Computed example of a mutant assay.
Amino acid sequence: MSAQRVAALSELEQDAAIRVEVDGVPMALVLDSNGEVHAIGDTCTHGDISLAEGFVDGETLECWAHGSAFSLRTGKPLNLPAYEPVPVYAVVIDGDDVLIDPTILKDIS
């Protein structure tokens, strides 16, 4: 599978998340305050809640329902009640296009 366009970079708002879907895989797409674009799994691992509806703070995305914050870099939860990470996807910027391949996870090591 190859990377697919999910949004225009110019459409993203800083420190905000949007929900995108690639081949049935829901993702939260975030432009952080440093201008970096992140894509993480959109479903909170504590409950079936869309993370894209949450709050961006620096390099974290907080679930609006129960307050678990996830690292945009590693997908790891930073506080309870969530204790399982969400997947983190590799993002490619090509001009104004934001591309993601849902089969390629970002190397977080």
Results as ranks from 00 to 15, higher is better:
residue 14 Q to P: 03
residue 103 T to D: 04
residue 44 C to S: 09
residue 25 V to D: 02
residue 83 Y to W: 10
residue 33 S to Y: 01
residue 36 E to L: 15
residue 9 L to W: 02
residue 2 S to K: 09
residue 43 T to P: 04
residue 20 V to Q: 05
residue 99 L to S: 07
residue 56 V to P: 02
residue 97 D to M: 06
residue 23 D to P: 09
residue 37 V to M: 08
residue 60 T to H: 08
residue 80 L to A: 13
residue 20 V to E: 05
residue 59 E to A: 11
residue 58 G to Q: 07
residue 7 A to R: 03
residue 105 L to Y: 14
residue 77 P to Y: 14
residue 47 G to I: 05
residue 34 N to K: 11
residue 85 P to D: 01
residue 72 L to N: 03
residue 47 G to P: 15
residue 97 D to L: 06
residue 98 V to G: 01
residue 14 Q to S: 12
residue 34 N to I: 01
residue 100 I to D: 01
residue 105 L to R: 14
residue 106 K to N: 09
residue 103 T to V: 01
residue 99 L to H: 07
residue 66 H to L: 12
residue 21 E to I: 07
residue 8 A to I: 08
residue 75 G to R: 13
residue 13 E to Y: 11
residue 52 A to H: 06
residue 39 A to R: 03
residue 89 Y to V: 04
residue 70 F to G: 12
residue 88 V to L: 08
residue 90 A to C: 08
residue 67 G to K: 08
residue 72 L to A: 05
residue 66 H to V: 02
residue 92 V to F: 08
residue 94 D to N: 11
residue 60 T to C: 09
residue 65 A to H: 12
residue 11 E to S: 09
residue 3 A to Q: 06
residue 98 V to S: 02
residue 29 L to C: 02
residue 12 L to H: 05
residue 37 V to C: 13
residue 27 M to E: 11
residue 35 G to V: 00
residue 89 Y to L: 03
residue 82 A to R: 00
residue 80 L to P: 12
residue 29 L to A: 02
residue 59 E to Q: 11
residue 9 L to Y: 12
residue 24 G to I: 10
residue 81 P to K: 04
residue 34 N to P: 03
residue 3 A to L: 10
residue 4 Q to D: 10
residue 94 D to S: 04
residue 19 R to W: 01
residue 92 V to I: 14
residue 23 D to S: 15
residue 94 D to P: 04
residue 91 V to C: 02
residue 78 L to F: 11
residue 38 H to W: 08
residue 31 L to D: 00
residue 30 V to I: 05
residue 95 G to C: 07
residue 63 C to H: 05
residue 97 D to S: 14
residue 20 V to L: 07
residue 60 T to L: 11
residue 109 S to H: 11
residue 86 V to E: 04
residue 58 G to I: 03
residue 94 D to C: 10
residue 34 N to C: 06
residue 25 V to F: 03
residue 101 D to N: 07
residue 40 I to K: 04
residue 36 E to C: 11
residue 76 K to W: 15
residue 56 V to Q: 14
residue 60 T to W: 03
residue 1 M to L: 04
residue 18 I to P: 02
residue 105 L to C: 09
residue 69 A to Y: 07
residue 9 L to V: 02
residue 96 D to N: 02
residue 67 G to P: 09
residue 39 A to K: 01
residue 35 G to K: 00
residue 45 T to Q: 05
residue 63 C to A: 12
residue 89 Y to F: 13
residue 24 G to V: 02
residue 22 V to A: 13
residue 92 V to K: 15
residue 65 A to V: 15
